[in-house]
């Protein structure tokens, strides 16, 4: 086999994986901290992508710049959704099940709203640099991929620092690991859940923008994204941010390599065969329970 091709697809896989990692981290956090499995996570990512698309198409705003507006906007929208829809169901007997049903409905609503606004045609983000490429010796990387990778890396680093260095971020981890003790030391679980949910949704938006720089997208793309999110979170361990990020990279690399060397129809077979194997042998993920 050609070494250049292997390395090229390896690096492409890492770039793709970093984007999945960014999308997966928020999915993992709401699951771990709030026991909310947010089926609409991918749909919010797609919403971020469409917002970037419109701002680019009609106002010529670069996706990196527009992310600075759309991501905080999604944060606020998510706070509202939390208050209106998510908070009531966290009192349910079975939060996991209730949250899946609720957010499944939310995903369908979002998908249809997006189909109405942006039509069902596939879209691509074509920023000014979309035809350019970074050439490093024998390797070749399209600029949008490089930007998507960089943005994802920045997003994950920001989440990591938030969780590790700020009081609110530490409270998020504390509430996940030992909710009762967190309450005893002054953590308001509702407040922390709202922050977690909003953070997850807004990073989903950022991840969606990054993914849109790599691939074309249409209103139902979030279904496929979601399946990949499950894969990333199950491999990385629920609630484990570093694990999720690493799992994103691993899965990106596996996908990248199988795309390069296997017939296209085999790619999903390989990745989801992997998911089955994980669910049977290491249902808690490849890493120890401890994480961030």
């Amino acid at each position: 086999m050609d070494a250049v091709l292997i390395i090229q697809s390896l690096i492409s896989g890492i770039m793709m994986g970093m984007v999945y990692a960014l999308l997966g981290v928020g999915f993992s956090l709401t699951w771990g901290v709030m026991h909310v499995i947010n089926i609409s996570h991918g749909a919010f990512g797609l919403l971020g992508a469409y917002m970037a698309y419109s701002l680019l198409q009609y106002f010529g705003v670069d996706p990196i710049v527009s992310a600075a507006v759309s991501v905080p906007l999604l944060f606020l929208v998510a706070c509202g959704i939390y208050q209106l829809l998510i908070r009531p169901i966290t009192r349910a007997q079975n939060v996991v099940m209730a949250s899946m049903i609720l957010t499944f409905g939310l995903a369908i609503i979002l998908e249809n709203v997006m189909a109405i606004i942006w039509k069902a045609d596939p879209r691509v983000l074509t920023p000014t640099y979309s035809s350019g490429a970074l050439i490093l010796g024998p390797f070749y990387f399209q600029y949008p991929h490089v930007v998507g990778f960089g943005l994802s890396l920045a997003g994950i680093t920001a989440i990591y620092l938030f969780l590790k260095k700020t009081y609110t971020g530490m409270a998020v981890r504390a509430a996940w690991q030992q909710p009762e003790a967190a309450r005893l030391y002054g953590v308001n679980l509702y407040w922390i859940s709202m922050i977690t949910f909003a953070l997850a949704v807004s990073t989903a938006g950022a991840g969606g923008i990054c993914l849109a720089l790599l691939n074309s997208f249409e209103p139902h793309s979030h279904n496929l994204w979601l399946i990949n999110l499950f894969l990333v979170v199950i491999v990385g361990g629920v609630g484990n941010v570093i694990g999720t990020a690493l799992a994103g990279l691993i899965i990106g690399v596996i996908t990248g390599l199988s795309m390069a060397f296997l017939p296209f129809l085999w790619v999903n077979l390989v990745t989801f065969g992997l998911l089955m194997i994980f669910l049977i042998f290491r249902p808690h993920g490849i890493f120890k329970q401890e994480g961030i």
């Binding site: 981890r173 504390a174 690991q177 030992q178 009762e180 003790a181 967190a182 005893l184 030391y185 994480g291």
Partner: peptide, 13 residues
């Protein structure tokens, strides 16, 4: 301030 039974530390912190 309560020190809960079983300590209830944050194990992964």
């Amino acid at each position: 301030i309560q020190v809960p039974e079983g300590r209830k530390l944050f194990p992964a912190m």
